[in-house]
Simulated assay, not measured.
Amino acid sequence: MSRIKVYKHDIFVARKATRYPTTQCGLIFVKEGQVTYKTKENLPRTLSAGDFTIYHSDRIRALESHADNGKFNADIITFEPSLFRQFCDNLHLSIAQTTDSEVHSYALNESHEIANDILTILLKAKDSGASTESMLESLAQALIYEILSIEPNFQTMVRSACDQGTAEKVIGFIEINIEGDVSLESTASFLGMSIATLKRRLAAEGLSFSQILKIKRVNHAATKLRLSNKSIAQIAIESGFKSAAHFSTAFKGVQGMTPKEFRQHVKKG
């Protein structure tokens, strides 16, 4: 699975918070209209058309879209945290110093030519579907490096993306592989620890692997029920459930209604 994903938005809609959310990090690139949000320090920020910035979901709040002459268009480019960890491991000491926790030049734009060019190439390479994953990751890391060269204080966000607990790492792995064969064994192997160690660390956080996996599969299915016209049986299979009956039972246990009732509720809303 790709560690880089691009989500195209024509509006940002507030959504109900989900259990076991995972940290999201990457870039926001506004093409048309404006995006407003507040920092962790409750400072207001605005991104206008042509602006882009590094973001970390734990450090931004009240994200809203604003149309300009009825038009809004923005790309959210998410980087799997392991990509940031790999970058941190190779971070050059020349840009390893920061002056304070507040980012001064929080937005970049077309005037930052090299960063803008790399971002443009990355988006085109991703859209083409013909580029290798290693090429996309190299472009992403070059872009992060260039942004940090312009504004070293962004390093706070980059490093915070690297500092994940066991539960967050498990959640991230599940979300990336949610439509595949996710198991306790494959997760432990990915994290480089034994099954017993993984169970013990999750238990220390009051969690279990099966509990997290069920919640994330149901959340994934709920998104498909909301956004697609696929049959409930097909969504059950794509979300990793062995049968429609098993899916219905698990879904009702989490959402408080059956998949069919959920879809009807969404359509009425």
Results as ranks from 00 to 15, higher is better:
residue 52 F to R: 00
residue 78 T to S: 12
residue 51 D to P: 02
residue 55 Y to E: 02
residue 58 D to Q: 14
residue 66 H to Q: 10
residue 93 L to Q: 12
residue 88 C to L: 12
residue 94 S to T: 05
residue 45 R to S: 00
residue 99 T to C: 07
residue 76 I to S: 01
residue 56 H to G: 09
residue 82 S to L: 10
residue 36 T to R: 14
residue 96 A to N: 09
residue 58 D to E: 13
residue 77 I to Y: 02
residue 62 A to Y: 12
residue 76 I to C: 05
residue 87 F to K: 06
residue 80 E to Q: 10
residue 61 R to M: 14
residue 77 I to G: 08
residue 70 G to H: 09
residue 89 D to T: 13
residue 63 L to K: 06
residue 96 A to V: 10
residue 80 E to T: 01
residue 96 A to T: 00
residue 39 T to Y: 06
residue 93 L to C: 11
residue 94 S to Q: 08
residue 38 K to E: 11
residue 93 L to A: 11
residue 47 L to Y: 00
residue 77 I to Q: 02
residue 86 Q to M: 13
residue 89 D to N: 15
residue 98 T to W: 09
residue 72 F to W: 00
residue 93 L to K: 04
residue 45 R to I: 02
residue 44 P to C: 01
residue 47 L to P: 07
residue 39 T to G: 03
residue 52 F to M: 01
residue 64 E to T: 08
residue 53 T to W: 00
residue 46 T to K: 06
residue 59 R to Y: 15
residue 71 K to N: 03
residue 60 I to S: 03
residue 56 H to F: 00
residue 55 Y to W: 00
residue 72 F to A: 09
residue 61 R to H: 13
residue 88 C to M: 07
residue 48 S to W: 06
residue 36 T to Q: 14
residue 41 E to D: 14
residue 41 E to N: 11
residue 90 N to T: 14
residue 81 P to Y: 08
residue 66 H to T: 05
residue 62 A to G: 11
residue 97 Q to H: 15
residue 51 D to S: 09
residue 78 T to L: 09
residue 97 Q to F: 12
residue 85 R to N: 12
residue 91 L to T: 01
residue 38 K to S: 11
residue 70 G to I: 11
residue 83 L to T: 04
residue 67 A to G: 00
residue 69 N to Y: 05
